Structures are given as structure tokens and as C-alpha cells.
Amino acid sequence: MPLGRLKPSRVLGIERFSDFGEFRANEVLGLGTSTPLRPREFSLTRAILPLRDGLFVFQRAFARELDVDVGTDRGIGLVVPFSFHSVSNGREVDNSTVNVVRGKVPVRSIERQPNTYLMMRFNSDMRHRGWADYDTGLGFFRTQDDPMARLRAAIVEMFSLASDCNDPREFEASNRPIQETLLAGLDATLVAADALTARRGSYDRHRKLIAHLDDVAALFGSKPLYSDDLAAALGVSVRTLQIATQAVHGVSLHHYLRLKRLWSVRVQLMTGGNGMTVKAAALGNGFWHLGDFSRGYRLAFGETPSETLANGRRPFHLGIGA
């Protein structure tokens, strides 16, 4: 999705520069000095989106040399490539590589083409999720095609929704589920599969943890299930829950929680009566991308949410045979 298709809204800021003399750097991951390689072709567009726990800047930059102390004073910074190639501190970085920075790191980068990427700054250091296990530095995480494609799709949908939304209160209600989807994509790209392998002899402990997870999830009732909340309620890290769900059920934590949320929607659609709507049930259970929700629902249950709702509204007749 070209950035040019995004339009400003009450929740999404858009900045466009066609003159290098007017260009201002964005401070999301540190200020630096840019030298355009082709000044006559200068152009930059960025979309700025603050979410509940961080700041996200989607940017198409210009061919340049860049000197910057990249990073953040607290939390963690990431760069997700869309169309990208650079040589940073002598290392070639391309479309398959997510950059993760802790602290501040001096970087000299040569970008010989206009690059498109998302810069993210989270307020949390995300150590509880198992990301980037080092204290200070810039890490390069090469990803598989499918997780990267899903992550990019979630980012595009996030910014498209923000671009179309002019009610800050409505977007605020979607803020948490949007971030949960983004975290799921980042978990899949930044946490290696072997890091989620349970230790030998730990199955019983993980099975008990999952049983406890199910009990806690049931107490949440109709409230959406978010990985951070559940981990906090259980007194463990998100990474520990990830290992446990993988060991016991063979699926990721996010997939497991998504199935629980789909079941919660299904129960509400079957029992909610005439006042229930598909949209209300989906949003109430943390599904913000309704197209993706509908596809997942049909895959899980073999019918559309609307069909479930219609069947739930049909009166039940008890027939007595002769």
C-alpha cells in the first residue's frame, strides 16, 4: 500500500516534504543528519500514529546518507521493512530483516534508493515477550516470508483504519486489540521457534499452567483476552505462556487465545437475542479487523457469523410425533 493513499484524520498525522530545505527529521528513534544522494528527486512521506503503549511512524524516505544515534532512552525500538535496502555500519540490510535497538547506538547508513518502512517505539522493553535478549545494541533479525507478510498486512490494516477514522473515541476502543495483533506478528518474527521448545520433563508443569490459564480466562467472562493481562494474572511472563501453549497444544499463544475469543463470539451470537449484532460481538471480543475475523470464524466453525446469529434467533419448536 503506497503511503500516498493514506489521508490525515483525527487520529493519524500525515507529513509530506518535496523540498529538502523544509524537511524535518522525526524523533521516534533518534535524530540524525541526512544527506540526499539525489537532491532533485527529493521526496518524503510519513504517517504518524500514537497508540496506547508506543509511537509508530510509517515512512517512505529518500536516497541518502544517514548519521544517527538510533534508539530510545527507554523501552525498545524496531524497524520493519516494506521496500528496503541499506548498508548500515557496514552490514547489508534488506527486506527480510527487522532491526531491533535497545539504548542508543551510533549508525552510519547508506540508502541508495527510497526506502519504505515502519519505525516503532514501545514504552515497554518487551523482555517478558522474549524479544532481543541483550542490554544495549542494534540487532538484525532475519525473518521467514510468511510471518513477515502477516506482520506487514497487520501494519497496513492498522494505518488504513486510522486513516479512515475521525472519531478518536472509536479508535481508542480499538487501540488495545490493534496492538495485540501487532504483538502477535512481532512475536512470530522475533522469537525463534527453538526458543519456545519446552525442556524435557516439563510437560506436566506446562499442562497445569494451561489449566490455570483456562480457569483465569473463564473468569474474564466476555472481556477480551490479551496476552499481557493473562500473563500478569498468572504471575508468569508472556514467553512462559508461549512455551506452555506450544508444548501442550502445539499452537502459539496468540492462536490459542484467538480460538477462545472466537468461541466467545459464537456463544454471544447464539444466545444474544435480537439486540445482538455481529460487529458488536466481534469488537467486544477484541476483533478489530472485521474481514479477518469473518474469515477466521468461518474457517473455525464452517459458517459465517451472520449465519450463526440468524440460527440463534430462530424460535425452537418442540414437535410431538403421533
Rank of each mutant, 00 (worst) to 15 (best):
Y203C: 13
A61V: 14
L283E: 09
S252T: 15
E111P: 06
R5V: 15
D146Q: 12
G32P: 13
L183R: 09
V236W: 01
I210C: 09
F42L: 15
D125N: 15
P147F: 05
L190F: 00
L182T: 07
G139S: 15
V98I: 15
N274S: 09
R266A: 13
D67Q: 13
P81F: 05
D292W: 02
I210D: 03
A232Q: 11
S88W: 02
M148D: 05
Y134K: 13
D69N: 07
M119Y: 01
V248M: 08
L78E: 04
L290I: 15
N99P: 00
S252R: 03
S252G: 15
I178D: 03
I14P: 01
M276N: 06
R239Q: 12
L118S: 03
W131R: 02
M119P: 08
F301D: 01
D204Q: 12
H85Y: 09
P8H: 08
V101H: 03
L234R: 04
R38M: 10
A217D: 06
V11S: 00
A217P: 06
R24H: 06
H128L: 10
L55C: 07
M276C: 06
R38C: 11
F316I: 06
V267A: 03
R121G: 10
P2L: 10
D67K: 14
R152L: 10
N95V: 15
Q242D: 11
G4W: 01
C165S: 12
P39V: 06
G4P: 13
F293A: 02
D125I: 13
R129N: 04
R16I: 06
L190Q: 03
N311I: 04
L37H: 04
L234K: 01
N89K: 06
T271W: 00
R298Q: 14
V57W: 02
E111M: 08
N285T: 11
G272N: 01
H128K: 08
K279Q: 11
L219N: 13
D135T: 14
R108T: 14
G291R: 09
R16Q: 11
L12E: 10
A195D: 15
D164E: 14
V57E: 12
L269G: 08
K223T: 12
P114H: 01
S160M: 13
E15T: 11
G312H: 01
I155A: 10
I48G: 08
A188Y: 03
L78V: 15
N274Y: 10
S109F: 05
T277C: 07
V68P: 04
R199N: 09
R199T: 12
L257P: 07
R199A: 05
G32M: 09
F293D: 04
F287N: 07
N95T: 15
M119V: 14
N115A: 00
M270Y: 08
S174C: 11
L37T: 12
G273Y: 05
R298C: 06
Y134F: 11
F58E: 04
R205H: 05
L299H: 08
V28H: 00
E65A: 14
E65C: 08
S202L: 02
L241Y: 02
S34G: 10
R112D: 11
Q113Y: 03
A154N: 09
N274H: 07
S160G: 14
P50E: 13
E180P: 11
G30F: 00
Y256V: 07
D229Q: 14
K7H: 08
G77L: 13
